[in-house]
Amino acid sequence: MEAPPEHCPGVESEQAGRVSACAGCPNQSICSDPNKKLEDPGKALVAAALKDVKHKLLILSGKGGVGKSTVTTLLTRYLARSCPDNNFGVLDIDICGPSQPRLLGAVGENVHQSGSGWSPVGIDDNVCLMSIGFLLGSVDDAIIWRGPKKNGMIRQFLSEVDWGNLDLLLLDTPPGTSDEHLSVVSYLKNDEIPNSVRAIIVTTPQEVALLDVRKEINFCKKQGIPIVGVVENMSSFRCGHCGNSSEIFPAKTGGAAAMCTEMEVPLLGSLPLDPLIAKACDSGEDITAMKNPTTEALAAICTRIMDSFN
C-alpha cells in the first residue's frame, strides 16, 4: 500500500479526491466518486453484534484527567442499582490508558473466549465490562500502537464481544478528537436511528479544561452526535476538618455553567471534589449506596439522563 499524500484531506472529508494534494494519489478516483465510496465491512459486523443493545452513550471530554472514567463508573453503578431489571455494559476504549478495570474493581480478571466471541467480565448481576486492561499481562505493559492498530482493537471490541441484551452500553473514551473517537463514531453511528448514540461531556471548572472541552463539543456537533449534557466534576472541595469549601480548580471564566450557555448544551449537574470518590476509584469500591452530598448530586444527574431516554 502506498502512503497517503502529505496533505491528504482524509477519505471521509467532503474534499476527498478534490484538493491539490490528491493529484497523483492512486486512490483519487475512489475518493472523488461518492458512489464508489467503500463502506468499512466492519460497520456491518458491529451492527450485527450490537443489534440487542438499545442505547449507546459515549463519555467524552477533550481534556484528560477530568473524570471521564470516574463518571462512567459512577453512572453505571448508580443506574444499575436503581434499575435492577435493566442490563448495562461498559466498554473502555482508552487503549493506551485503560482505567475501568481498577475503577470497577475487576483488576486481574480474565476475559474468556466462547463460541459467540469474547465474554465481557461480569461486575455485578446486571453490569459487564470490557477493557484492554484485561488482555495485558501486567500493569506495566504498554500499548505502543499507532492509530490503525487502535482502530482494529476498537472494532474487535464492538464486533467480537458477546454483549448480549443490553439496555445501555456506556463507552469510556480517551481524551482528544482523534483515531479512537472517529472510529467509534463511524462504527456506531446509524443515520436511520439518530438518537441511538449520544454523548455526555465531562469537564472540570477551570478554563484550561473548558478550552479542550469546547473542542470536543464541536467535534460532536460536526459528527452529528447529540449531546445529552455536561457533567462538571471536581467543582469544589469541602474540607473534612473544618467543613469550609474551597475552589481548587477555580472557575475564572464561569465554569461549566457559562460554557454550557455559550455552547448551547445542557448542564446535567456538578460533582464535588470528594476525597472519598478518589479513594473509591483506587480501590474499586462502590459508593453509590451511601447517602452524602456527592451521591445526591449523582442521583440528580442520573435522573436527568434517564429522562432524556424517554
Binding site: E6, S178, K215, N218, K222
Partner: peptide
C-alpha cells in the same frame, strides 16, 4: 478559533 476541534487521525498528526 479557540473552539475549533482538530479532528485528525494518526498520519496527519505525525506529519
Amino acid at each position: 478559533s479557540r473552539t475549533d476541534p482538530v479532528i485528525w487521525r494518526g498520519p496527519k498528526k505525525t506529519m
